[in-house]
């Protein structure tokens, strides 16, 4: 019985098992039989000792219930209620009502994207938002180039190489962009494929950053 105290370095509060002394204090004599250890899990549906009081129906609870149901109905019909993507192997909807439900156009929610992290934006929108940034970057490069030219006049060859590199990088970036667009113009299938590939790479990046929990 006295698996008792300490041992596992707990916080020192009393554990569930009692020592003989404690049992004595609680009024269990040496003669009293201690119930055997219970090794079975408790029943799934334990019997109720007492019957709970019935509800007192009131207009207010009725109204609250209606409000509750209204809200749930509204949510289920709203675009926020996302349905599982129907896989091709799944059977066609059996009930007519299901067919009707499937016909309801699933309108997409409109969001104010400035409130959300950019990674959640749909692909097309993200690009549109990025473009003005790209223009800005262009201007910067132009400015930088002119600045570099000025320095170049005074310093000479070394800077020229750097400039070349910068231009090359820009070209590369442009290429990538072009590729993106080609992929996007394709079918859904192509889109999906591209998406997955990107995710795979990103995951790798994350692994480097820290442990996974």
């Amino acid at each position: 019985m006295s698996r008792g105290r300490g041992g596992r370095g707990g916080r020192g509060g009393s554990n569930k098992t009692f020592t003989r002394d404690q049992l004595n204090d609680l009024g269990i004599g040496a003669k009293d039989a201690i119930p055997a250890m219970v090794t079975q899990p408790p029943p799934l549906y334990p019997l109720m000792d007492r019957k709970p009081l019935p509800f007192t129906p009131s207009v207010e609870t009725d109204y609250l219930l209606i409000l509750r149901q209204d809200f749930i109905d509204h949510m289920q019909l709203s675009p926020s209620y996302l349905k599982l993507p129907i896989s091709k192997t799944a059977n066609q909807p059996e009930q007519e009502i299901d067919k009707l439900v499937a016909q309801i156009p699933s309108a997409k929610e409109k969001y104010d994207w400035s409130l959300f992290p950019s990674e959640l934006r749909p692909k097309a929108l993200a690009k549109r938002l990025k473009n003005p940034m790209g223009k800005q970057a262009d201007i910067n490069i132009q400015e930088k180039l002119t600045a570099l030219e000025k320095i170049e006049e005074s310093k000479g060859v070394v800077v020229k190489e750097e400039e070349l590199e910068a231009e090359e990088e820009e070209e590369l970036a442009m290429d990538e962009d072009d590729q993106d667009e080609e992929m996007d113009e394709g079918t859904d299938y192509a889109n999906n494929y591209f998406d997955n590939g990107e995710a795979y790479e990103d995951e790798d990046d994350n692994l480097d950053e820290g442990p996974i929990y």
Partner: peptide, 30 residues
């Protein structure tokens, strides 16, 4: 997980990423 970035959610739930994006938007919205 309490706290998790987008791609871990994808890994843990096995859903297409667009669906996860959408559902995160819904949850954030509410």
């Amino acid at each position: 997980c309490q706290n998790s970035p987008l791609l871990f959610i994808k890994k843990g739930t096995d859903l297409p990423i667009s669906k996860i994006r959408e559902s995160l938007c819904v949850l954030i919205k509410y």
